[in-house]
Amino acid sequence: MSLKLTDVSLSGIARDRLHEINLALTKPGLVGVIGANGAGKSSLLKVIAGLEKVAHGEVVVGGKRLSDLNSKQRAALLSYLPQNEQAQWDITVTELLAIGLLQHSLGKQQRAQRLQKWLNYCDLTGLAERRLSTLSGGERQRAFLARALISEPQLLLCDEPTAALDIQHQLQTLKLLKEQSRAGRLVVCSLHDLSLAARYCDRLILIEEGKLLATGAPASVLTDTNLARAFSVSAEWFCHSSGVAWIPQPLSEGD
């Protein structure tokens, strides 16, 4: 699976929400989109998902121009999980996962097998008949993620999948996304926690005011210069065998 953005711009009211983004992701992996609030992370994911019409440029997913695909062809390639997904009606976990298969023509047996596979995979078997209102925040997020994965897309887009989760569920969610990337999918997700992004992501995309500031391996993106420019902070990094951690400090005057 490959993803290529060429000169992509998205109009906004005061300024372009995205401005001339050029990006090429050629291998499966977990890719983190980072940046300050309002930098354009969600807009970038929506453009890739085909939910926002670009003012300029083109998006190519799996070698096909997104603008040439109809809505069903697009849905067969990619899946999108928005930030803070909510269910309007209090359905069960199984019923939620089945929504992810509504546009797929599967036989009754195949459908049941697919449901069981993703219930097992996302550790939801014991919660299958529970209503969403009875689940914890972490369990609910896992169920929404399973809904996005059940169509078995080549490209998975998640907008802040760890937002509002406690640390245990943040780790569980990122582990699940990492496993999916190892299974051959391209997973692109926006993240706020830079330590977790550095630890789990194969590649980072740093956005500042709608422009691509840096992209590459976490160590090459999370430099002092980039952090100062994108977040107006300086950082002290600590390395450990299981990952890295950082302590951010506001930039002092003169920095």
Binding site: A87, Q88, L96
Partner: peptide
Amino acid sequence: RQLLTALTLSENTVASMGFK
């Protein structure tokens, strides 16, 4: 009818699932 079931989720999700 299927759109009505899909609309349990947000409109962006439903659009990304291939519904017009």
